[in-house]
C-alpha cells in the first residue's frame, strides 16, 4: 500500500534536515504504529507524505499503491486515497461542517471521475456515520471545529475519514489531548474502518492508544530514521523503559 524508500527531507529554507532516510512499507490491511521521542521527525513524516508546504524532499521516494505521492498536490494525494488526521484539527469559522465534508467528498469523487453525491444521498450517509461516532446534528451544523472540545475535534477527524474512505490513513498523535473515554471512542471509530484494503499509520508518543488500536507492526523513529521495527511488544518495551535504552541499544 505505502512504500517509503530512503526518504530525506529538510525545512524548505534549508535550515534543518529532519528526515534522514526513512524506509517504511505498510502492506494493505495492516496497522503500523510509529513511536519516538519528541523531535524524532514523526509529524514531519506525516506532513511530507501529505504534501504540506515548507518541506523539501531531497532524496528518496514515497509511493501509494505504486503512485508517486511526492509529485502530487495535497488534494491529488487525498483523491488518490491518502488521509491525514491532524494532531490539531483546524478551526474554520463560518464554514459549516457539513458544507466542508460535502465539498471535500465531492471534490475527491470528481477528481476520480465519479459522480458527485446529491445533497440527499450525502446527508443520509453522513447522519448514519456520525451516529456511530456520537456526533450529534448540532456538531454537524456548526462551523468546522469551532467550539468543539478536544474529543469532538478528533471524533470529527474520524468522521471525515469515514466519509472520505481513504485507502491509507495517517493518524498524527490523535490521542493527544484526549481523556480515556474520548480515546476509546476515537479508537472504536478507527477500528470500525479497518478492512483488508485499508491501511493505517498511527503516530503516537504513548503505548496507551495502541491498547485500543492494535497494531500489526511497531516502528521506533529517532533522528529522522526508523531505528527499530517489531511487533506490538515493542510498544510495551517503550512504555516500560522509555526511549533511552532503545536509542543507546541502536547506538
Amino acid at each position: 500500500m505505502l512504500e517509503i524508500k530512503n526518504l530525506h527531507a529538510e525545512l524548505e529554507d534549508g535550515s534543518k534536515q529532519i528526515l534522514n532516510g526513512v524506509n517504511l512499507s505498510v502492506p494493505a490491511g495492516q496497522v503500523h504504529a510509529i513511536m519516538g521521542p519528541n523531535g524524532s521527525g514523526k509529524s514531519t513524516l506525516s506532513y511530507v507524505l501529505s504534501g504540506r508546504d515548507g518541506y523539501e524532499v531531497t532524496e528518496g521516494s514515497a509511493k501509494l499503491e505504486g503512485q508517486d505521492l511526492l509529485d502530487m498536490e495535497p488534494e491529488e494525494r487525498a483523491a488518490a486515497g491518502l488521509f491525514l488526521a491532524f494532531q490539531y484539527p483546524v478551526e474554520i469559522p463560518g464554514v459549516g461542517n457539513l458544507t466542508f465534508l460535502r465539498t471535500a467528498l465531492n471534490a475527491q469523487r470528481k477528481a476520480r471521475g465519479e459522480d458527485e453525491l446529491s445533497s440527499g444521498e450525502f446527508l443520509k450517509i453522513v447522519r448514519e456515520k456520525a451516529k456511530t461516532l456520537n456526533i450529534d446534528s448540532d456538531m454537524l451544523k456548526r462551523s468546522v471545529s469551532v467550539g468543539f472540545s478536544g474529543g469532538e475535534k478528533k471524533r470529527n477527524e474520524i468522521l471525515q475519514m469515514a466519509m472520505l474512505e481513504p485507502r491509507m490513513c495517517i493518524l498524527d498523535e490523535t490521542d493527544s489531548g484526549l481523556d480515556v473515554d474520548a480515546m476509546r471512542l476515537v479508537a472504536q471509530g478507527v477500528n470500525a474502518l479497518r478492512s483488508p484494503d485499508r491501511s493505517f499509520l498511527v503516530i503516537t508518543h504513548y503505548q496507551r492508544l495502541l491498547d485500543h488500536i492494535k497494531p500489526d507492526v511497531v516502528h521506533i523513529m529517532a533522528n529522522g530514521q526508523i531505528i527499530k521495527t517489531g511487533g506490538p511488544e515493542l510498544a510495551l518495551e517503550v512504555e516500560n523503559s522509555g526511549y533511552g535504552d532503545l536509542l543507546s541499544e541502536v547506538g
Binding site: R52, D53, A78, A79, F83, F86, I92, A111
Partner: peptide, 9 residues
C-alpha cells in the same frame, strides 16, 4: 493545507 489535505482543490 487542512482543506487541501481533504481533497478540496
Amino acid at each position: 493545507f487542512y482543506l487541501r489535505s481533504r481533497g478540496v482543490p
